[in-house]
């Protein structure tokens, strides 16, 4: 808990409050934009392979971080994978208890040579196990906006 939640505002303390609104725009960059558009339009997950050295990237990228070759082509992966690790979030960011805890996992994505994807796992906390197969659950097409939350989460199969 921060002091501003603890301080009685009438204590003997001199301060002034700053109230400067800042609006951020978080861009995805060229590679992720392609990735999220494919999910939005076709429900497809895109990876990419470096044409020079063969390194595989998921989500798809536009250049290879090993040999700096340009990568233009993508290929589809099913989006399925296995639970690599997970945590169960009981508190919200403000420290208040969540109504239902969220399971957030690292998913090792099939067909990507071990790439991990961070997302919610749709399961009761005591039912999650490392190594279980999972598949992605997408929002209905009309509700997709081209971002990470077009994927509702992963369900254990």
């Amino acid at each position: 808990m921060g002091l501003s939640e603890r301080i009685e505002r009438n204590v003997d303390l001199s301060y002034f409050e700053g109230k400067i609104p800042v609006n951020y725009v978080y861009t995805y960059g060229l590679g992720l934009e392609k990735f999220f558009n494919a999910i939005k339009e076709k429900g497809e997950f895109l990876a990419s392979r470096c044409p020079e050295c063969g390194a595989v990237y998921f989500p798809c990228r536009i250049f290879c971080e090993r040999c700096f070759s340009e990568i233009t082509r993508t290929f589809k992966v099913p989006g399925t994978g296995t639970v690599y690790s997970y945590t169960v979030c009981h508190l919200d960011m403000d420290g208040s208890p969540k109504k239902e805890p969220d399971v957030v996992g690292l998913i090792e994505v099939d067909g990507t040579e071990g790439a991990k994807f961070v997302h919610f796992i749709d399961a009761k906390p005591d039912k999650v196990t490392i190594g279980r197969k999972v598949k992605p659950v997408l929002k209905a097409k009309k509700d997709r906006e081209g971002g990470i939350f077009d994927i509702k989460g992963f369900r254990q199969v």
Partner: peptide, 10 residues
Amino acid sequence: MSKCTTVEVT
């Protein structure tokens, strides 16, 4: 850090 609320620090 403590002049911020928990959500801000997080």
